[in-house]
Write a protein that binds this DNA or RNA. Structure first.
Lengths: 99, 99
DNA sequence: TAATTAGTTCGAATAAATTCGAACTATCGT
DNA sequence: ACGATAGTTCGAATTTATTCGAACTAATTA
């Protein structure tokens, strides 16, 4: 079966509780901070002390909550923080969390 | 055994992930919103469709994460949102979440 | 003193999240 | 075509959270 990335919620489907939950984990928060700093990056560059299947799980949570968007580029999955959507729906949240 | 309220973290012991986790639940977020609106209130005034033992659990999570502080007043436990501490440690977070 | 009220604590059941290895898909390079 | 690389998916184990009823503590009121 082909790889299906989870469907990412549209801007107006973002749920505050889901976003807060996604950000409430150290690993995921670390990923988000690094994306905020360095812009679009593939999954592999994140140095977390966990096997890739665990990392993949955390990316899924970030995608499904709408915190991150992922596009395919060759053999890489490139991840971007959904700044615009998050700022539109929850103004100030990202800034407060990333500070 | 006497009733021991969970120890509330000091301002500089607040953890962002713990706060975000506490806020990532609809019931708890509802309590926090109502405290933000109406100021100090006892546990009993919150109309959530759950038995009081469940409510008590949610208050515990809010206290242990440092979102809420509780003082005893007669037979009531009065709860207050820890605005000052939260704003000091995570500027803008509360505003963004409560909007 | 007894009854009521407010809310916690306990214990056990259920539900949900996390973790990891192994197997897999897809792409790239040789 | 083959091997290596990137990352997902699956399945099962473990951990953590939630839920609730019942028993409890402490304060109030009769």
């Amino acid at each position: 079966m082909p790889i299906f990335l989870p469907k990412e919620p549209l801007r107006d489907e973002l749920l505050l509780t889901a976003v807060l939950y996604a950000l409430s984990d150290e690993v995921r928060l670390g990923i988000v901070r690094q994306l905020a700093e360095g812009g679009e990056q593939p999954c592999g560059v994140f140095e977390v002390d966990r096997p890739k299947s665990s990392l993949s799980h955390h990316f899924r949570v970030l995608r499904e909550s709408g915190v991150v968007t992922t596009r395919k580029d060759g053999k890489l999955l490139m991840n971007t923080l959904r700044r615009g959507d998050l700022n539109a729906r929850f103004p100030g949240l990202l800034k407060a969390v990333l500070k």
